[in-house]
Design a protein around this nucleic acid. Structure first.
Length: 444
DNA sequence: CCTGGAGTTGTCCTA
DNA sequence: TTAGGACAACTCCAG
């Protein structure tokens, strides 16, 4: 008897963000359709709902797939303990990770902190990921007066903002498998190189589907492997699979370091001198009005589509944290609200990584230059023009730094700096220097 | 316990 | 124009 419980009560500060709520709404709607509208939906504290239901239907056992958010683990352990003491059989399964975080450990029994040994040694040298399971042939359905109508859960946003997302995402199993096969057919063979260029659609776009379990990593893993069965040494395949490995690593870190979403993994960063009164800069960053075209393109892609290309996530993150000196947790919050793939593990781990305070910390001097990145990875300005239409008239030579363009070119292109497109809000060289000094201060 | 190599994704300067 | 080294020092990890 499949049921779904929307448990905002237990989620605390990590209730689903706006984009997530929209995606989840669509996904549940589609799942319910798939099940002849018989998916039973509840809302509220699972600790109360589940025991009540069990009594009501006289169930003797309950199965669920494991979640890995710290608040879920806590809640589910409590439920499991209570039910077991009442003689109910509780079985839990892994449906969302390729390797259980508690099974991958170093020889001394402690968890890995560096990705490469975690993945290459810890994961790849242990059991290979299990094959996907078939769809259940038989299912019972619950009939209960307490079931909620999906539309009453408050998942579907009241604003029109989500309408834009409909253009980009088909939040169904079908949508997931279609993304997967398009990727395998047309992008995997150039993935290692192509994934660096946000203007090319050379990524899988599977993140939101993985996030909500519309497709499992096992399906993706084995589909990718069998798309390329003759060449296990293939660099493109290897790179793609290792991205699934990064997803695993994020969950792994969250499991072993449950404070990951809120606390610098490296304690010395607690002393970092973040900018005060940064409200104005933060607003400009959020809405893609920093005056750096690549940054603005990334931020607007996020708001328009609920997604951002991975390279841009790094570039805008680096800009927020290092050039604007704004605490990474602000960026994490904004992503949490805007991303359709908002995932506590991946989002937190990503922000800690880019801020340099994570487990596998980048050297502090690695500060992305938005102009260099733009010239390197969007040389024709394809991506920028797509998301920052007011610059679409500029020749590619000037699109990376419009304030350096001659007046005549700007005029011809219809760009009026300070009017229809902003001047840069900070100077790259000076702000980089400031960041380096701030990091030096943190070390003391 | 010691040792040595390595650490997703960069930038800048110099030769 | 381009390739290579500096940018710190530290921690992680395996042998």
């Amino acid at each position: 008897m499949p049921i779904f419980i929307l448990d905002d009560e237990s989620a605390g500060e990590w209730k689903y963000g706006g984009a997530s709520r929209w995606f989840l709404y669509e996904a549940l709607n589609n799942l319910s359709k798939q099940l002849d509208h018989k998916l039973s939906i509840f809302q509220g504290d699972a600790k109360a709902i589940i025991p009540e239901l069990i009594k009501k239907v006289g169930a003797s056992s309950i199965y669920w797939n494991r979640c890995y958010e710290p608040w879920c683990i806590k809640r589910d352990a409590l439920i499991k303990g209570n039910l077991k003491s009442e003689g109910i059989t509780v079985k839990t399964f892994n449906a969302s990770l390729l390797w259980e975080p508690w099974e991958v450990l170093k020889k001394d029994g402690s968890p890995y902190k560096v990705f490469t040994p975690f993945y290459r040694k810890g994961c790849l040298m242990s059991q290979p990921p299990r094959y996907p399971l078939d769809t259940p042939v038989e299912m019972n359905f619950l009939s209960s007066d307490d079931c909620k109508d999906l539309n009453t859960l408050g998942l579907k946003p009241s604003s029109d903002w989500f309408k834009k997302l409909e253009n980009f995402w088909d939040a169904s199993t079908k949508g997931a498998l279609s993304k997967l096969s398009i990727f395998l057919d047309s992008a995997l063979s150039d993935y290692r190189e192509g994934r660096n260029f946000p203007g090319r659609k050379c990524v899988s776009f599977l993140s939101p589907y993985l996030r909500y379990g519309l497709v499992s990593p096992n399906i993706v893993w084995h589909a990718a492997l069998s798309a390329n069965p003759n060449n296990l040494e293939d660099k493109n395949l290897d790179t793609f699979l290792s991205e699934l490995g990064w997803r695993e690593f994020s969950y792994y870190l969250l499991f072993h370091f449950p404070d990951l979403p809120t606390t610098n993994l490296q304690k010395k960063f607690d002393r970092f001198p973040w900018r005060s009164n940064a409200e104005d800069f933060f607003e400009k960053w959020k809405w893609g009005l920093t005056g750096y075209p690549l940054i603005d393109a990334g931020m607007r892609e996020l708001y328009e589509t609920g997604y951002m290309h991975n390279r841009l996530r790094m570039v805008v993150g680096s800009f927020l944290v290092k050039n604007l000196l704004i605490d990474w947790r602000y960026g994490e919050q904004w992503f949490w609200d805007c991303l359709v793939d908002a995932d506590l593990a991946s989002n937190s781990a990503g922000w800690q990584w880019i801020a340099g305070c994570g487990a596998d910390a980048a050297p502090y001097f690695r500060i992305f230059n938005p102009i260099t990145q733009s010239e390197k990875f969007d040389s024709e300005g394809m991506y920028i023009k797509q998301h920052v239409p007011e610059l679409s008239g500029l020749p590619s030579k000037y699109i990376h730094a419009p304030w350096q363009a001659p007046e005549s070119i700007l005029k011809e292109s219809g760009v009026e700096l300070g009017n229809n497109y902003p001047y840069p809000i900070v100077d790259i060289k000076a702000s980089r220097q400031k960041a380096l000094e701030a990091f030096a201060q943190t070390k003391m």
